[in-house]
Amino acid sequence: MTPLLEVEDLRVSFPTRHGRTEVVRGVSFSLGRERLAIVGESGSGKSQTGRAILGLTPPPGKATAARLNFEGQDLRNATPKQWRDLRGRRISLVMQDPKFSLNPVMTIGRQLMEAATRTSQTRAEAKDHALAMLEAVQIRDPLRVFKAYPHELSGGMGQRAMIAMMLIPEPDLLIADEPTSALDVTVQIEVLRILDRLVTDRGMGLIFISHDLRLVSSFCDRVLVMYAGKVVEELRASNLAQAQHPYTQGLFNCLPKIEGGIRPLPTLQRDAEWAR
């Protein structure tokens, strides 16, 4: 069986005063119908990896790869028409901040309907689908949110509305870039539950980009740890406590614990070797 997504030697670079700087430096992985996490700190290249898969590297940045296949289709030279058929329908992207990714002059309802018209025959059907999806992401009063503009919603509500929008076309692959970082812990669990069901029941593939090691280790199947544009370690999420790489260990140990731990907290001693 071919994997859902194959990435080989993915590189993303941006021009700077001192020539091109690579922010993603040869990332390779393959994804089945599973939950794959990409973890790293800000600037590690994890978000740029996610965007490059969808061909959304912002210019003047450039993305190259030895291989970038989605269900056997080569994405490297996809035409605009092919991208339109893929983006949103087959591959969806949930971004971190609802403030910047929802259209501020359209009601949530209209934005959801736009996504729903592709799967529904009539407007009424599309509206029902949109409302049902809002309910599925645990929004208590779907009709109010449906009629609201993005600025009338809290960050958590906006985020959930955006997740609902991305899930309406029932994509085969969902790239979620810090989808729950802006949410309260209890809401976070609700959203993860929805994603979890989509993976287990519908066989969706999920790339979960996050800086939260603890969350990722409890939710995902596999974890790629990124540092300075490279994957420094790949491991089963359940084996995170036995991580081999000092960076992964450092990231895990510097978290404060409810049970109480070491004071002062162990800090991460960076090694220039890791970035090689």
């Binding site: 700190e41 800086h211 450092g250 510097c254 978290l255 002062p264 162990p266 800090t267």
Partner: peptide, 11 residues
């Protein structure tokens, strides 16, 4: 802040 930076600031 990132987790590693959080640890430094908390310390």
């Amino acid at each position: 802040l990132d987790a590693s930076i959080q640890a430094e600031v908390l310390n």
